[in-house]
Design a protein around this nucleic acid. Structure first.
Lengths: 256, 256
DNA sequence: CGCGCCGTTGAGCCCGTTCAAAAAGTGTGG
DNA sequence: CCACACTTTTTGAACGGGCTCAACGGCGCG
């Protein structure tokens, strides 16, 4: 089996009460006792190997998820075989909620990039938690609004920015999101970055060939180093200027 | 003053208890008595003339809105003077919620296309309603998730579809959304459609010149008629085939 | 060592852009 | 009801960013 080594490295969820990603996650506003209670609603934990699907377009939607460890993404396929990546998922991100009724066909797919571990909740369990903990509802609304704002930012990129700007923008966004997850506020400018150039292409609405060319140019200008699944941005401000990077949604704090 | 005639035609909000757009709106799940109570939280009603702003990028965010009558849109400007339209707003649509804290700078602008009338709520009033009516919280979450799904659909368009497909897709989406708002289920295939071609261009990430050319081609193929602020789609299924129109999010019903 | 996956490089083409100008609507004032 | 100004749409011609097709190089893994 491929990637065996990675699978052994992956962190697995333990007790909700001591969850290391909680400060990023849906359950952030709950007290210690409350969060312990959510464990009763967690119906499962799960591991998905690289390239595997958490769910696929057309599947029945009965569950929602918190990503515990690893990288994943939401995507949609077009009739002619193309793929659009809608959103990258990092540890602490909540996903799987969609409009419509429980059990409706999923409108997107969710795939793992690295080996991924998940906490699984049922739709109905989420609803019950909602009723008991109003703060959770607000937090969920806030997180959804934040995801919508990120989607809007991507819309601006795809609609009105050049390939160079789009790529710079995406890399910066992921750079900041990945760094905001780290406990240590140590400012090293390198992050783990397991994407392929094709992922970047499918997120930016470009061809992987063109992405390769632009990346060479950005490297040429000493704006970034990307080797061996690690990304270094020596001078984020300079790359931000290239990208017209405006709001940093990664840094936005909850309404509560 | 311009547009005087239109301003006299616009519908103004009355009592929440008898609100005609409620079945579409945030307050749909509430009982008659409950909805009457929301009136206490409605701090204002307001009219914005065509081209005017409800709010602008950078303004302080203290209010949220329900669009009562007219058409509006959310947009963001780029450094080089470009504009990306993120979302068109129709009667019953709720908008103005954004991640971050109350009073943070708005990350988008909201502009009126036709004369528009609004119901205005404060952020804090919304929170209080939340605490008292849990169904409202779920409804708000659902509406936000729906908007995110529409944004994702647009991402697929801008990233992976041709100009012809994008335009067909947008017109169909708006056609269905506008029709789903009408009380009468009469199936006439014509809707009021107050956009300019430039609005379409800025939503699709295209030039207004190119939009004009593509529209001529679509008209040539008898796929649509668009004159005098009215849009007719004689055979929606045929246009849907051109657009690769998949999910109809306009038709999706709430989770409650 | 050999196979697959991923990234790079080159040449030519096409969709959508830019720049320019004219035509068709639309609201205003006489 | 017509004349005027302004906005919106249409048309033409030339350019260019990103695409397609194709071949090659590098690296990890069996």
């Amino acid at each position: 089996m491929r990637h065996k080594r990675h699978q052994q490295n992956i962190a697995m969820p333990g007790m909700c009460g001591t969850c290391p990603v909680r400060r990023l996650a849906l359950f952030q506003p709950l007290s210690e006792e409350e969060v312990a209670a959510t464990q009763g609603y967690r119906v499962d934990t799960r591991v998905v190997e690289p390239g595997g699907a958490v769910f696929r377009q057309g599947d029945s939607s009965a569950e929602v998820y918190t990503l515990f460890d690893g990288w994943a993404f939401l995507s949609q396929r077009t009739a002619d075989g193309g793929r659009q990546i809608l959103e990258f998922l990092l540890p602490g991100d909540f996903f799987g909620l969609q409009p419509g009724r429980f059990g409706d066909a999923r409108i997107h797919s969710a795939h793992a990039i690295t080996p991924v571990s998940l906490c699984v909740f049922t739709y109905s369990g989420l609803m019950e938690m909602f009723k008991e903990h109003i703060d959770l509802g607000m937090r969920l609304t806030w997180m959804t609004a934040r995801d919508e704002a990120i989607a809007h930012e991507h819309l601006v990129s795809l609609g009105r920015r050049s390939a160079r700007e789009r790529i710079a923008h995406l890399l910066l966004e992921l750079f900041h999101r990945a760094r905001s997850r780290r406990q240590d506020p140590e400012p090293g400018s390198t992050i783990d970055f397991p994407l392929t150039q094709e992922h970047v292409a499918d997120a930016c609405g470009l061809t992987k060939i063109h992405v390769s060319r632009i990346l060479s140019a950005l490297r040429e200008d000493n704006l970034l180093v990307w080797r061996a699944k690690e990304l270094t941005i020596p001078n984020p401000a300079r790359l931000a200027a290239v990208a017209n990077y405006s709001h940093d949604l990664a840094a936005s704090r909850p309404i509560l």
